[in-house]
Design a protein around this nucleic acid. Structure first.
Lengths: 336, 336
DNA sequence: CAAGATTGGTATAACGATATACCATGTGTC
DNA sequence: GACACATGGTATATCGTTATACCAATCTTG
């Protein structure tokens, strides 16, 4: 009992050969009932647990999947992870989560770690400024990869949200309520997601012949949203509605309004994106574009499983639509 | 280029032997400048990345650590994870995160997965009803283990918070403000953390000769906190202050007060635990018992590194104190 | 210039598992 | 009783590394 148990120690304990133990534990080969019993008892007694890494090395089958995500503290992402893990765990896979915190350098080292540590597949929310070298690296290692949210090129499977469609619907909804000066708030740098969402906003603004487009940056957290909204209100007092890049920003924006004595949904309408759990609980309850993170997670899991099982499968792109969830933070503009 | 690159393919490309390549890449042994160059060029050309699993198998050194946590969607935990990962990544370790969602069965399968997949160390927030079998399993595999938050026995290193001290300080602070009827809200089942925290609350109540102890259950999320607080107010209208088991519960409790027309910090005081990011941003800003999650994460990382490096080291228990952070959700009771 | 020391590498075994091939038995058939 | 065939297992090679041992050159040194 001085070292950790292996097939060898179990075999010795049971008085049989190593391949026999392996066959018993995996249920392959032809084994008599009596030796089966001996082996199982020995394995249990020694608390034997197979070493999947050694097994993977020989058999080529690898049941570990890396999930490289941009921001784990975002509840939307956390729920997607839950959806992925639920499905993959029942299939016998282990998911290990890595958080890049949107840092391109950390991303590089983490993707390399995914390869080094021999993961059999990769789910990945790419950073905007991912170097092309990274794509070569993944390709050279034949890593089954699914990108999530941000599509980087045509060599990986992709699962995402119809962003442009969603922000267009959100903007049109606000226009239908009677708003003419609608701003877009949130999103950092020039991420793909943000440009898609802004595109949808812009299209709605131009189709409905609304006032000029007003774009305002903010990180995706409540504090940043609060501060950005305060600045936006000062710079553009004519704005009566904002489409936000995420619920966290939107909740921050509502806070800014409340603190300056205005009523979200009355004086200024706010619409979020993601439908995180807080959206329903916050005050006022947030109108938002919702996608089911759990459903997204399950689709991700299915796609990576199919890719692993059949590496020659043609590329797939799955996009799902966001739905407008009307709550209290939007309403008709108050007459001036 | 048909398979993924290995030492063998690099060796062939460079025209040297496999051990030579290994030595060049790890900087060991005596190698001439010219062959070093050849090897490095070949490795770069083929996008070679070492297979840590194979290396770990042979050398026994293992740079993967599993972090089995009870609830990833809790921002406090997410921040602890960040602290752990930051320190361990700079030391060349990879951290893979598993979320049990406080499900004992999932915990069992995930701990087994940590062993199966050959992690070299384990950080673990144990579920309350962890079977003793699990301890045997970890011991049999000589898994370097550090428990976090919930100490289960005297065989693992532990990092935690002085819970009893914290809730006692919180309760005393409320008593000093003049409150006589103080309730304790939150915590599910009979977890160790909860019983420690309740112990501190009880001690303060008895030492200050306050009214009877009032304990009220709630899950640690905003919605549950909201509903629990509503029920508590109906059952015990005399209560003027609540000590909460977590910030999420406390924020929910504040919401319940606001919705029923009462002012948190005026009519009823609320004090949280954890000092999550939302605590400062929520309305009213939450008074809470704060511990630095980042600091906790770094201590966790240091302890597991020491344990891995020196398995015979005597057991360590690190506890850090929470500090009272006064914001707007507490105040003197209004005269009746 | 012979003996030892240094330099720069290679051969081989091992880590813990699985896959393939093979070898003892016992059992049925004519 | 000679043959095929099923049953129940073992021997051996292999996955991609690293550790140990060793060897062939070249360089010192007295």
């Amino acid at each position: 009992m001085s070292r950790k148990p292996t097939l060898g120690t179990v075999a010795k304990e049971a008085g049989v050969s190593i391949p026999t133990v392996s066959q018993v534990l995996r249920g392959t080969g032809r084994i008599s009932e009596s030796t089966r019993d001996k082996v199982l008892r020995a394995a249990k007694k020694l608390h034997y647990v197979p070493d999947f890494r050694a097994a993977a090395m020989r058999s080529g089958e690898n049941r570990e999947i890396g999930f490289v995500i941009n921001q784990l503290s975002n509840p939307f992402n956390a729920e997607v992870v839950s959806g992925v893990v639920d499905l993959l765990e029942t299939e016998g896979y282990m998911v290990s989560i890595l958080d890049t915190r949107d840092d391109a350098q950390r991303q590089t080292s983490q993707l390399e770690a995914v390869i080094k540590h021999g993961r059999g597949g990769l789910l990945w929310v790419p950073a905007f400024d991912t170097p092309t070298e990274t794509f070569d690296l993944l390709a050279a290692h034949k890593m089954p990869t699914v990108t999530f949210l941000r599509q980087v090129n045509e060599t990986f499977d992709h699962v995402g949200i119809r962003n442009a469609e969603a922000t267009r619907k959100a903007t049109e909804y606000l226009a239908d309520l009677g708003h003419r000066h609608i701003a877009y708030l949130g999103g950092t740098d020039m991420t793909i997601v943000r440009s898609e969402r802004i595109e949808g906003y812009k299209r709605a603004v131009s189709e409905r012949a609304l006032g000029p487009c007003i774009l305002w940056d903010s990180m995706d957290n409540k504090l940043a949203g609060l501060e950005a909204m305060q600045a936006l209100l000062r710079a553009h007092p004519e704005v009566t509605a904002v489409v936000c890049n995420g619920d966290m920003v939107a909740i921050g924006a509502c806070l800014a309004l409340s603190r300056s004595g205005q009523r979200p949904g009355g004086d200024v309408s706010v619409i979020g994106f993601d439908n995180i759990q807080d959206a329903a609980v916050s005050t006022p309850a947030l109108t938002t574009m919702g996608v089911s993170p759990n459903k997204l997670g399950q689709i991700l899991a299915q796609v990576i499983l199919r890719r692993i099982h059949n590496p020659e499968m043609p590329l797939t792109v799955s996009e799902i639509s966001a739905e407008l969830i009307v709550r209290e933070s939007t309403g008709a503009p108050s007459p001036r």
